[in-house]
């Protein structure tokens, strides 16, 4: 499996995962099954451990106990870049772009996992996000927040990943831009990939999700359909 790409839209299995930073444990034994090909929304208040769980799945943080599988592939012990080349795409929290590189140079970096030429990467990106075409020679750090997220999301667009992890896509963005970005997430999922979204804005995430779970204090406290989770999320937020 080391050189092969992941199969299209594999399930994500999180089995008894514990993880943290130094001596502080953030995840206290997480069990989660993200169905193959689903758009799974992970909701919860600040400090619940959502981003940490995403980092464990993405290979950024090592689990101190338990294991994560992407299909049959165990994540543990693999480097982030190896997982990326196998077909795992992460859009990290904040703005997942290189601020000192131009838009075009950022796209050039995406070709490491895209396996298609730069010209095609540009064509796909600019077709989906017209605004970026006019800014191709502009440093990414000077783009608006929404444009930076479009550029970050373009990675998923060009690399045809099997698994897409998205962390707080809507952070600090106007509602119209968020809607546009989530529309793209829906389109991406339709191409055949498993999507795991971490989001604080419940309605935004549940509108696109096919399944969801609530996290509080490093534990999964509820899991179900988006409509079932809408109410559970409200009480989780109020309780925090």
């Amino acid at each position: 499996m080391s050189g092969q790409r992941l199969p299209a839209a594999p399930p994500i299995t999180v089995d008894g995962v514990r993880a943290g930073y130094g001596r502080i444990e953030v995840l206290h034994g997480i069990d989660l099954q993200v169905p193959a090909g689903s758009i799974f929304a992970l909701l919860g208040p600040n400090g619940a451990g959502k981003s940490t769980l995403l980092k464990v799945i993405g290979g950024h943080v090592r689990a101190t106990a338990g294991e994560v599988h992407l299909g049959d592939l165990p994540v543990g012990g693999r480097s982030v870049e190896h997982l990326a080349r196998l077909g795992l795409c992460t859009v990290p929290e904040g703005r997942g772009v290189f601020p000192n590189l131009t838009v075009r140079e950022n796209l050039r970096i995406w070709t490491y996992s895209a396996r298609i030429p730069l010209g095609e990467v540009e064509e796909r990106t600019y077709t989906a996000f017209h605004r970026l075409a006019d800014r191709r020679q502009q440093a990414a750090g000077t783009l608006s927040g929404g444009e930076q997220q479009m550029l970050a999301l373009s990675r998923a667009l060009v690399s045809d990943p099997s698994v897409l992890l998205v962390d707080e896509l809507s952070m600090g963005l106007a509602p119209l831009v968020v809607a546009e970005l989530y529309e793209m997430v829906g389109e991406l999922a339709a191409r055949g990939m498993t999507v795991l979204l971490v989001e604080q804005f419940v309605t935004t995430a549940l509108a696109v999700a096919t399944r969801a779970a609530i996290m509080t204090n490093g534990r999964i406290t509820a899991e179900g359909s988006p409509s079932e989770m809408a109410e559970a999320a409200l009480s989780a937020y109020l309780a925090s």
Partner: peptide
């Protein structure tokens, strides 16, 4: 700029 982000793009 960001070594971790570069890793997520597939470069070491």
């Amino acid at each position: 700029d960001d070594p971790e982000l570069l890793a997520t793009a597939g470069a070491s």
